[in-house]
Amino acid sequence: MTRPIEMTIRDIDTQAMREWCEILRDDNPIHLDPAKAEALGFGSRTVNPGPANLAYLLTLIENAAPGMTPISLEAAFLGNVMSGDVAVATGQIDDGKARMELRVTSDGAAERTVLMAEVRLKPIDGTGVD
């Protein structure tokens, strides 16, 4: 059975990006310095680390399918989430497979998809579901 799922992430800010960078040991200036992000063509705001964007999608799965655990994941990062953006994670779970995407809106611009992912799941205490 297909189950649509959705979650909105509103408080994507520079402090959260700094914490992700600490955890990831990633001092890429596009995540930390708006001036350097702008000089590199990313616009005037810092860029959310890709693993943070993927973590939102994994939270969506955890919320929607609490009895399941991921066994494999494929993700394509198509664009960036910037500080101050609102992100919407959506997807559907069907027969042990979650197909999800993360979309963002910012500054009144058109919504755009920045991340697509497919995750295979299995019951936490069982075998794989195909």
Binding site: A16, R25, P51, A55
Partner: peptide, 30 residues
């Protein structure tokens, strides 16, 4: 940070896969 709820059982948030990969290799990814 991932906007998740409290943990159920002992399974860590699935986002740890990337956190360990980049943050657990003993040196900065740089």
């Amino acid at each position: 940070l991932a906007k998740a709820g409290p943990r159920r059982g002992d399974e860590a948030h699935a986002g740890f896969a990337l956190a360990l990969a980049l943050g657990g290799i003993g040196v900065p990814i740089r």
